[in-house]
Every structure is written in structure tokens, then in C-alpha cells.
């Protein structure tokens, strides 16, 4: 087991961070992000402290920093917006090199970049160190409504099945000389999308039958999850608690 097959984000490993029960990691992430977001923008040193703490967690997890950096491209749209803010924001302006930029915009950009980057990096650390199944089990344990847990679990299970179905349809279209060029192709693509939806819907009905046949009565059984030890709790609390101390040190007189 455990070969890194087909997972977009998960990086296989056995570090302390990997072994932590998923629901504790979710709570730790939430607490860390709340601390980061609650920090006033002008406490620049505090953000540096958070970055160091998070870097420490990455080191402990033994996920290569490059692996995380590549996946941080999801943040690019926010970075673009952050870079625009000093230019388009109003208010008093300060000269920066050849440009005259809005001071409020600069602080806004800094806040967005700092808080966004820390949030994205922390979320990625959770995603890379937690199996998708573990994440669902963790959210289930955190009493996420059963309907949402089931939607997540089924999405995990059937994403590849539906993707394979879609790729077979694409092959079938291409085999009969179809190429998706120009608006004329849209009609065909729209119909394919419709067919895919109907196929998936029918699969949903068959899956439901199979579930009923095995005694399904409206909720998934709790997915197996390891018991929580005191050491797990301590490890999970470490990052948000340290971040909280940094915040306290920064804002308390």
C-alpha cells in the first residue's frame, strides 16, 4: 500500500505531522489561520514569526519545500490582485521608485499577500500530509453534517470513474473525426456534457441501490480513525499555540 499513485496533493510519509489524526490537523489549521488573520497588518515581525513557525512544521513533516512551492501556484490570482491594489487604490500616495503608489493600497497588498500566503501554505501542508480518506474521516469526526461528508466521500471515490468516462467519450468523438475547434463544436461538447451528466446520474442510482442492498439507512458508518493520544494533542496544539504567543508578544504592550 501507500504508493504515491494518482494523488494530486498527498505526499506519502510517516512523519509526526503525517501521523496526527486528521481532525486535530484540521482544527490546528483553523486555529493557526484565525491567529494569522487576526494579526494587525502593521505587525510585520509577527508575520515573519508565523512564517518561521510554519517553515518549522514543514521541516518536521519532511515534505520537500519545492513540492509545496510548486503547488502554491493556486495563489497566483490573489497575488495578481494584490499587486494591482497599490496602483488602483485611492488615498495618500507615496513614491516608490518611478511610481507613485497608494499607501493604503500598499498595506492592503501586504496584508493580502502575507495572510494569503500563510493560509495557503498551511492548508497545503495539511493536504500534503493527510490522505484524502483521512481528511473525510476527520471532518466526519468533527461532526460535519452527514450529507456533506457523503458528498465528499463519493466525490473522492467517483472523480476518477467520471474522469475515465469523460476520456472514453472524448476518444470516441475523436475516433469519428471530431475536433473541438470553433463555436460549431460547442453543440457537440454540450451534448457530451449532458450525456456525461445523465450517465453519472444513473450511476448514482445504481450506487444507491447497492447501498440499500447492504443496509444503508441514511448515514455512512464512522470511517475508521485512530484513537487520540496526549502526545497527538500536544503536537497538534504546538503550531497554533506558538502562533498565538507570537501574536500576544506583538500586540500586548
Amino acid at each position: 500500500m501507500g504508493a504515491p499513485h494518482g494523488h494530486l496533493l498527498h505526499y506519502h510519509g510517516h512523519s509526526v505531522v503525517h501521523r496526527l489524526p486528521a481532525h486535530l490537523k484540521v482544527l490546528a489549521l483553523l486555529a493557526f489561520v484565525i491567529v494569522v488573520v487576526a494579526t494587525p497588518a502593521r505587525e510585520v515581525a509577527a508575520f515573519g514569526g508565523y512564517a518561521l513557525l510554519l517553515a518549522g512544521a514543514v521541516v518536521v513533516s519532511r515534505v520537500p519545500p519545492g513540492y509545496l512551492l510548486v503547488r502554491m501556484v493556486v495563489e497566483v490570482p490573489f497575488v495578481v490582485f494584490a499587486l494591482l491594489m497599490p496602483v488602483i487604490a485611492t488615498g495618500p500616495r507615496v513614491p516608490v521608485g518611478p511610481f507613485s503608489l497608494s499607501e493604503a493600497g500598499l498595506w492592503g497588498a501586504w496584508t493580502l499577500l502575507a495572510k494569503g500566503t500563510l493560509g495557503v501554505a498551511a492548508s497545503l501542508l495539511l493536504a500534503t500530509t493527510t490522505e484524502p480518506r483521512g481528511l473525510v474521516a476527520g471532518l466526519q469526526r468533527l461532526r460535519l453534517p452527514p450529507a456533506l461528508v457523503q458528498i465528499l466521500a463519493f466525490m473522492l471515490r467517483y472523480l476518477e470513474v467520471v474522469a475515465a468516462e469523460m476520456s472514453r467519450m472524448r476518444t470516441a468523438r475523436a475516433s469519428r473525426g471530431f475536433s473541438a475547434r470553433g463555436p460549431a463544436a460547442w453543440r457537440v461538447l454540450a451534448r457530451s456534457a449532458g450525456a456525461l451528466f445523465i450517465r453519472s446520474y444513473e450511476r448514482g442510482e445504481r450506487v444507491h441501490l447497492a447501498m440499500l442492498s447492504r443496509g444503508y439507512q441514511g448515514s455512512l458508518p464512522q470511517l475508521g480513525a485512530a484513537a487520540v493520544t496526549g502526545r497527538d494533542l500536544a503536537a497538534a496544539v504546538a503550531l497554533p499555540a506558538a502562533a498565538g504567543l507570537v501574536l500576544a508578544a506583538a500586540v500586548l504592550p
Binding site: 484524502p132 480518506r133 473525510v136 466521500a153 463519493f154 473522492l156 471515490r157 467517483y158 450511476r203 445504481r206 450506487v207 441501490l209 447497492a210 447501498m211 447492504r214 444503508y216 455512512l220 458508518p221 470511517l223 475508521g224
Partner: peptide, 14 residues
């Protein structure tokens, strides 16, 4: 259609 849980173990346990 029959195997709908995230892992084989979860599915057999269902």
C-alpha cells in the same frame, strides 16, 4: 457501483 467507499476496508465494513 458496488464499491463506493474510499478504501476497500471501509467498503467491506459498510
Amino acid at each position: 457501483d458496488q464499491l463506493f467507499m474510499p478504501t476497500v476496508r471501509d467498503d467491506v465494513a459498510f
